[in-house]
Amino acid sequence: MSFISNLINGLSLGSMYALIALGYTMVYGIAKMLNFAHGDVIMVGAFTMFTAAATLKFSPAISIIAGIIVCTLLGVIIEKIAYKPLRKASPLTVLITAIGVSYFLQSLALLIFGSNQKSFPMLFNFEPIRVNEDLILKSDSLMTMGVTILIMVALTLFINKTKTGRAMLAVSEDKGAAELMGVNVNKTISITFAIGSSLAAVAGLFFGLTYGFIGPYTGAMPGIKAFVAAVLGGIGNIPGAMLGGILLGVIENLSKAYISTELSDAIVFAVLIIVLLVKPTGLMGKKINEKV
């Protein structure tokens, strides 16, 4: 495989990480919590689409929409039941709760679908594009990138231009002050979870299409990697998550191609550590001065 096709596969993987990382970073920015269950929302999205398309024989469009709706609702419900009562609790309590939710979703999927990997239905059947002998572009890679760019542009516009988006910014800046200005904090947090989880559903679709197989623990590793991506870009920072995700995907794919398949995860994590040692708040994170 040529360098360019490796790079493009990396960009496609990176777009997937970026989509998941956006969910992490938005939730962190607003609720100041690490949503460890976010990775498993991807798995739920993928399984919903699998059930709708392969078992219930719905059309691809309906299956995808069903997956997105289920994940969006799931995100909001998780927030209402598990995280909302803990808003004033210590961050560690919330973290362990999120881990509990993650175990819950995994074991539920294990009960319903069993531990065997399921083959994900090919919802789209595009021919790969042959540019020349060496360079064959997989169309699902191109689609992943295209859709991700569209989503990122839409999300940036939404956050900066609409009233709800600015409310989200305000809440992440200062919850108390935003409340005094008439922002409905609870609603804003729910919307953030809804958006983050729907992005996770889209990422679940791309995951299924790219790897072809899904299982109850599918979401765990991409979830951790996307979390790393969010931290790499500066957690809480939306452009940072996009940058971090894409960088991480490219690094992972290039090290798989040119260094070692087994060590690619180690290389990805090492990059994170090096970046954080040089810039302790991530690539695009702001430095916060401590007040005494």
Binding site: T93, G100, Y103
Partner: peptide, 14 residues
């Protein structure tokens, strides 16, 4: 196990 974990954390932190 997951439900017990979540319930304990909610009782503890809510």
């Amino acid at each position: 196990y997951a439900v017990v974990l979540i319930a304990m954390m909610l009782l503890n932190g809510s």
